[in-house]
Amino acid sequence: MTQAWVLGQRALREAWRTPEALLPTLFIPLFFLVVNVGQAARIFPSKSTSFLHGQGYGAFQLPSSLLLAASFGSAALFLVEEIEGGYFDKLRATPIPRTAIVLGRLISEGVKGVFMASALVVLGLIFGIRIASGPLGFVLLVGLAALWAVVFSGFMQAIALKTRSAAATNSAGLIFFPLLFLTPNFVPRNLLTRPMEIAATVNPVTYVMEALRSLILEDLVWSKILYGFGVATALGVVMLALNVRLIRHYD
């Protein structure tokens, strides 16, 4: 674990030194938040829309932006760069567990996820969004968003290890957009058309989004929160196992 943390610190230094890779991950989700609220806020006035629990439409949309920010991790692209440049082989030639090599970058994505989610939520607070579940809810909100950052980075890293191609890794990242739009992104699940409702129900991102949303709009609703954390943790375990398998068989 020490070696994974040492590699995680290196990845954090790398992120700090490449703000050009970091800033769009904050800017684009904010852009989507502003545009989505601008387009739909008048359709859903807070006073007459029960699913907003008295808040504005921005509060309903914030989870989408949190998930979007968490899915923009640069770990996999830096990994491809390292594979192409030869440093990855240098790491593989050290006697550290293969798990540490993949965990290092995931740890860093988790830490970055905490900072990105905190920044987005604080910006939301400035613009009048309230975290109805209180300080504990804030911690859980940021924690779940960061956990999702680890999960999605794990997915991207697996693609990077399998394809060793920046183009393929970049393209794989785009899968998040259909996944995001097949969630109750604009309205709750019970208001979706039947086909969309089915698609959202089988989409794991839905449960993470619903947990994040409940933390913003409601008091601590543990059934939704645990569902969200459960789905993210299960996917995280699958991604980590996949990464470890790929690096162990990497030739």
């Binding site: 020490t2 070696q3 040492v6 590699l7 290196r10 230094r13 790398e14 030194r17 490449t18 390292e82 440049g85 030869g86 440093y87 990855f88 082989d89 240098k90 790491l91 030639a93 050290t94 006697p95 550290i96």
Partner: peptide, 24 residues
């Protein structure tokens, strides 16, 4: 091991790279 095309992490300093290698 030093392979073709010096495999280094260009975003680190020389000292950071060597210290990291030692830690590994």
């Amino acid at each position: 091991v030093a392979l073709q095309e010096a495999g280094l992490d260009a975003r680190q300093t020389g000292r950071e790279l060597l210290v990291l290698q030692g830690r590994l």
